[in-house]
Write a protein that binds this DNA or RNA. Structure first.
Lengths: 199, 199
DNA sequence: AGATAAGATGAGTCTCAACTCACTTTCAGC
DNA sequence: GCTGAAAGTGAGTTGAGACTCATCTTATCT
């Protein structure tokens, strides 16, 4: 009846990395980092093999941590959405309520132009159950930014959070196209922002 | 030196169907129709095999007409863009200049929600050289609608055609998401249209 | 240090879909 | 209706990529 400590049963606040052996935790992080890079460059159709190579690990290790490719994509997606939520929180506490929402949208679209991950994910598989929570969190964050902006008189009172989210995802999608450059992005978002302002 | 009439050398206004044997022309049309259906339902990742089945033809026939899958997707894309250009022309001659542009965008986005073809194509492969002409034609059409709307005072004078096209494609992309329903679509486009109106 | 289970490995399997081609069928001109 | 070329056929080839597993390695506990 002697042996290693059994896996800890408690709740794990961020990810399922508690109770993992040290090397496993390290490798999991490496995989996620590599995957984010690879998928950002080549989109979600990049092979798991390439992710493994970039992480300097064997393909089997990747599949041990993420049994299917969808799981891997879902984990990245979750990370990305969580980071967006953090940005929202930061802007909500520090930024000017009148411009925080616009700043957030601009930043996110900017980022989308570089990282195809989110975009391709949303397009290919729709919003997955695995990331539903993360999406809800982001939605709530946007709700906060929106209502502050409305109270500051910077955004029309009848705009709703789901409209903002729709505009945001649409703009992110659009950011992938040929001919989309910083200038066009700026001009296009300016139109959208004008549409959001009070008449 | 006797034999069947050699293929006609003249220009072919719509598609490369002139000089084809009757059955070939018929089958080519069947393939395009089937492909449009299949890709609209399942997106561009649907198999060529399924297209052949839907058309009631052998797989080899499909590949005889369209040597690669990209060719097939390109042909559909071209068709679709041509149809959009036709709609633009119709609205340009018949419609109210003040609302024609908005009507066109609404219709197109509406259609995108049902047919994933264009969207997935643009996302997966970028704008292909094969359809560059068709895109240019659509661009010119939008340019016309835009300048009429501006002359009618319905759209701000500083809006440019590429901004409109960016907004249009972005909205079409957005239309694929879970949670995108006619109501949300209407409200979101209303914001965009407000952004396009003179202040 | 020794024991042991967790973790890592990567060659191999399996599935799926794009594409080929030797052969058959059909159309069109005589 | 005969003939030759154009078109159609579909089993087979090929390649790519997701996923497996028998085996080896290593962290961690005593």
């Amino acid at each position: 009846m002697t042996g290693p400590k059994p896996p800890e049963g408690g709740a794990n606040p961020q990810g399922a990395t508690r109770g993992l052996r040290a090397d496993a935790r390290r490798n999991r992080a490496r995989i996620l980092a590599a995957a984010e890079e690879v998928f950002a460059e080549k989109g979600p159709s990049a092979s798991t093999e390439e992710v493994a190579a970039r992480a300097g690990l064997a393909i089997g290790t990747v599949f041990k941590h993420f049994p299917t490719k969808q799981d891997l994509l879902g984990a990245i997606m979750k990370d990305l959405l969580a980071r967006l939520s953090e940005e929202v929180d930061a802007l909500a506490s520090d930024g000017d309520p009148a411009t925080a929402l616009f700043t957030f949208v601009s930043q996110t679209v900017e980022q989308a132009a570089r990282k195809k991950t989110v975009i391709g994910l949303l397009t290919e598989s729709g919003v997955d159950v695995r990331v539903a929570d993360a999406v809800r969190l982001l939605h709530e964050g946007i709700e906060g930014l929106l209502s502050r902006a409305q109270q500051a008189g910077a955004v029309r009172g009848d705009a709703r959070p789901d409209e903002v989210l729709a505009l945001l995802t649409a703009a992110c999608q659009g950011a992938l196209h040929a001919g989309w450059d910083p200038d066009l992005q700026h001009r296009t978002l300016a139109i959208v922002f004008d549409g959001l302002r009070p008449r």
